[in-house]
Amino acid sequence: MTEADTQTTVDLVVGQTLGVSLPANYRPFTSTNAAMTLLSTSGGYPTGQPLKELFKAVGNGSLVLSTQTDDPCQHATPPCGMPVHQWTIHVNVAYASPGGDINLTEADNQTTVTMAAGQTLHVSLPVNYRPFTLTNPALILKSSTGGYPTAQPLSALFQAVGAGSLDLSTLYDTPCNHDPTPCPGPYRPWTVHVFILYPPPTPSPAR
């Protein structure tokens, strides 16, 4: 990543590395998120050398990597009026899935799945979950059966066709929620966060 990549989002799988190269007037990063570890750092303000840092994705999670420019005149009395430039990227880290099909159930609610383009994902949920409605072009719905109000278990098959990230979501519903006097039955959400990589990750990728 370079100065031009500010305000972008990066999706990584555990094991990948992320290199950042910025001009010498940027401060070194301070990152405490458990999803990323700092492997090496050199340069940056006030060394007068370009800032180069290398991170490694080590756990599931999301974080913001952020730094800003600095200059000796900003620490003078009085400080100069030189503008400060912020550099920020958003990083999502997930565990890579095996190359075969991915199967999810009700117990997988609020988890994160990483897929490669071409993989399929099968979701099996109890009868009262509504069928999925999906508009993200990175994941297409191949088939869907059952779900509320059919009184049959919900079974949906998806295929990853391009890079992207999305939330795959549905709700638990009951007939009494639609009575003239609705019952207090909750609309329980079921959501899985999906990251799709294209092309599929190689054994030792680096960026």
Rank of each mutant, 00 (worst) to 15 (best):
S21M: 07
V161P: 02
H75T: 08
H90F: 15
S204M: 07
A34T: 15
G15S: 10
Y26H: 13
N177V: 06
T174K: 11
P180Y: 05
C183K: 10
H75I: 08
A24F: 02
F132N: 05
G59S: 10
V84Q: 08
T30G: 13
V91K: 00
L157S: 04
S124C: 07
G185R: 01
G61A: 07
D179W: 12
R207A: 11
K52D: 09
H75G: 08
L141P: 00
R207W: 12
D11Q: 10
T32I: 13
L197Q: 01
P28Y: 04
A4T: 09
N177F: 06
P98G: 09
A35P: 04
D70Y: 05
H193Y: 14
G19V: 10
P137Y: 04
A34P: 15
G44T: 04
F55W: 15
S169E: 12
P131C: 07
V58F: 10
T9H: 14
L38P: 01
M36R: 02
S169G: 14
D5W: 12
Q74S: 13
T17V: 09
P203D: 06
V20Q: 00
C183W: 13
A94W: 02
T111Y: 03
K142P: 00
S21L: 10
V58D: 08
P78V: 09
T133N: 06
Y187F: 13
S97P: 01
A206R: 14
T9Y: 11
T37F: 06
R188N: 14
T170K: 01
P175H: 09
Y45A: 00
L39C: 08
L22H: 03
A160L: 03
D11T: 08
L39G: 08
P126E: 04
Q86H: 10
H122Y: 02
T202W: 09
N177R: 14
F29I: 14
A76Y: 07
D5A: 15
L168P: 11
S169I: 13
N103E: 12
N25W: 02
T114A: 12
T69W: 06
L197K: 04
M1V: 13
I140H: 12
T88S: 15
S42N: 09
L51V: 09
Q159K: 13
Y148F: 15
I196K: 00
D5Y: 11
G19M: 08
A57I: 06
P175G: 05
F132Q: 07
Q7V: 01
Q7F: 07
A107L: 12
N25M: 05
D173S: 06
M1A: 13
P72K: 05
H85E: 13
A116G: 15
T114Q: 06
R130A: 07
V10W: 08
V93S: 00
T150F: 03
Y148K: 06
H85T: 15
T120E: 12
Y45Q: 01
V10D: 02
L139W: 03
L54Q: 13
G99C: 09
S144K: 07
A117H: 03
D108E: 11
V93Q: 00
L54P: 04
G59E: 05
S143F: 00
E3H: 14
G48F: 11
N25Q: 11
G59F: 01
